[in-house]
C-alpha cells in the first residue's frame, strides 16, 4: 500500500520534470511545476504514515505512552508546502498572462527576447 504511494510520487516527479523540459507551451510548464510539487507533497505525507495509527490529535491527559499515532510533523510540513506551491502557481500564472499580453503567444520558442 505504501509502496504504491512511493511509486506514484516518483512517477509524478518524473512526469513534472518531463513536462517542464519537453513541453513548449508556457501553461503546460506551469502544470509541470505543479506536478513536481504534488509528487513531493505525496512523498512528504507518506513518510509520516504508520499503518493502523490514529490521527495525532490529543490533549495532555489523553496522551499515554502506548498511544499509537501517525507522525504529525510531515503533515504540518505538507500543509506549508501546499500553501507555497499554490502561491508559486498563482505567481507563475499571472506572469503567463502578462507574457501573453506582451508577446501574443505562449510558445517558448518565441518568448526568447533575452538570450546570448
Amino acid at each position: 500500500m505504501l509502496l504504491m504511494n512511493y511509486i506514484t510520487c516518483i512517477l509524478l516527479i518524473v512526469m513534472g520534470l518531463y513536462t517542464i523540459v519537453m513541453k513548449k507551451n508556457l501553461m503546460k510548464i506551469v502544470i509541470g511545476m505543479g506536478l513536481l510539487d504534488y509528487g513531493i507533497n505525496l512523498l512528504l505525507i507518506s513518510i509520516g504514515f504508520k499503518a493502523g495509527g490514529t490521527a495525532p490529535i490529543f490533549t495532555i491527559g489523553e496522551l499515554k505512552s502506548d498511544s499509537f499515532f501517525v507522525d504529525p510533523v510531515p503533515q504540518a510540513l505538507t500543509l506549508t508546502s501546499i500553501v507555497i506551491g499554490a502561491c508559486v502557481t498563482a505567481l507563475a500564472l499571472s506572469l503567463v498572462v502578462m507574457i501573453n499580453k506582451h508577446y501574443g503567444t505562449l510558445d517558448t520558442d518565441e518568448v526568447r527576447r533575452l538570450k546570448g
Binding site: L17, I20, L36, L95, V96
Partner: peptide, 17 residues
C-alpha cells in the same frame, strides 16, 4: 517591459525546480 515579465517567468520556472 516584455523583458521583465519574460525574465520573471524563467526565474520562477528554474527557481522552483
Amino acid at each position: 517591459r516584455p523583458e521583465a515579465v519574460e525574465a520573471g517567468f524563467k526565474y520562477i520556472a528554474i527557481g522552483s525546480i
